[in-house]
Design a protein around this nucleic acid. Structure first.
Lengths: 109, 109
DNA sequence: GCATTATACCTACATTGTAGGACTAATGCG
DNA sequence: CGCATTAGTCCTACAATGTAGGTATAATGC
């Protein structure tokens, strides 16, 4: 099953859409969670996700910018979406009615 | 940070309340997720959660039942609740607006 | 051409997930 | 009483994931 960081990466890639590549995914994660992750952590995870067929990556063009190297672009696959969905649904199902997940209607009563 | 399985165990313990112990947590997880976990996996996780101060465990009485051995009872600590809450909120925040997490209102529009 | 900058990527280690089997203590029954 | 049966715990080993830091490469600007 998916780990938490893998889920984060998958989600960030979906949000960024065609602008998803190593560095942008990293800053997206920093924005979303408030924690910065090491680049090494990210690329390792990208490799593993690709090996599992949950994302596809390919090299894009260089951007006309000082230091604008070619980017490794990322796109989530159908399989990746299914895995992310399944992770999310498990968390939701399990959390339903528990105090920290909004038990306003009191699960027990 | 918390792993997914650790979150599952924490949540199951909260749901079971005073009836939370190794075997009952295991069947709760099976009910919630549809997947059975090995007992070894569970006890290892219990040990690690206790080491991190997220749960407390102690030995209870034997039940008057054939094979009714003493149970290792489990209770989540305040720290455990905080960790679970934080895990849940991260997943929620990150998933907001993404297709598999109910984008009925179309995040982009 | 050389400094500067954006970006990729490799290597090693820590933490978490998973599995299976072994051990223990209680009851029930002959 | 003692042995089979059963509910339950727990140990050991390994696989998968998470994390960190450092290094390499290619583009621009001067």
């Amino acid at each position: 099953m998916l780990g938490e960081f893998e889920y984060l990466v998958l989600t960030a890639a979906v949000r960024l859409n065609s602008a998803a590549y190593g560095a942008s995914i990293r800053s997206e994660i920093a924005t979303l969670t408030g924690r910065v992750c090491a680049l090494g952590a990210l690329y390792t995870t990208l490799d593993r996700l690709e090996a599992k067929g949950l994302i596809e990556t390919w090299m894009g063009d260089a951007t006309p910018l000082r230091g604008g190297r070619a980017k490794r672009l990322v796109r989530i696959t159908g399989k990746g979406i299914a895995a992310a969905k399944s992770f999310y649904e498990t968390v939701e199902r399990v959390s339903h009615g528990v105090s920290w997940a909004g038990n306003r209607e009191s699960a027990m009563a």
